[in-house]
Design a protein around this nucleic acid. Structure first.
Lengths: 120, 120
DNA sequence: TCCATATTCAACCCGCAAGTTAAGCAAAGC
DNA sequence: GCTTTGCTTAACTTGCGGGTTGAATATGGA
């Protein structure tokens, strides 16, 4: 298996998990420390730590330590390959960013029902 | 979980499997019967049948019976939601279709090494 | 130096996805 | 009507992903 297909495998399976998609959506707003990423979710910190490792391995985020805090930041280019792959399958209308906002709102509401409102 | 997130889960996990991506790439060329879809792969027909069921459940293909043959055809709109989701994360350059062709070629070469040349 | 904070590692459990083989059906053909 | 062809279902095995808890590690602060 080429590194390229390995990457596609990694990207799509990373995106397949709703918790990880919610994390990405959160990071879209701002860089965050691991603990803060974990806060809204019902699962343990260790679980979130694993999720972040998966996202990093897929090239979707980058984690960099500053002091004792590890900052997680989105790596938007990580989606490029997957985006190229997907768009090849259809001529989609240019994406309306409002569509995207709705998506994120619905997803967060659905998959992290315990989110404090200010994060939803 | 809303039907919408269920769909995103289904789509991304369907795409996470290289065999299923290869199947989609094959169907991009032409509609195919289940047996013909299965032919290039090293796994059993039953396994491919399951893969096709997964793709159908994710709305990525449609299967319709004609006589005793079940034709599989791509459902390009099935990728729309996922595409909307992904593109929200970055302003990607308009996709070069040649990129896509390279992707498919590499993927087929890598994940279905036993493909006869005329299908690769 | 000692303690608290931030994060990961290790070991483990559990459920599910993907594969197998064998049997079951449904439609065509002789 | 019987057999062949096309495909799915059933029952089962196995591997991996996502969760847990508890210990380990690293940094900052008092």
């Amino acid at each position: 298996m080429t590194p390229q297909t390995a990457t596609l495998d990694a990207i799509f399976s990373a995106l397949a998990d709703p918790t990880r998609r919610a994390i990405l959506a959160m990071l879209l707003e701002d860089d965050m420390a691991v603990t803060d990423v974990a806060a809204p979710f019902a699962v343990s910190l260790a679980a979130i730590s694993k999720h972040l490792a998966v996202l990093a391995a897929a090239g979707l985020i980058r984690q960099e330590r500053r002091g004792r805090i590890i900052w997680c930041k989105l790596e938007p280019d990580g989606l490029r390959n997957a985006s190229v792959w997907m768009q090849g399958f259809g001529q989609f209308d240019p994406v309306d960013l409002d569509d995207f906002e709705r998506f994120l709102a619905d997803e967060l509401a659905a998959s992290a029902a315990d989110l404090p409102e200010d994060q939803a």
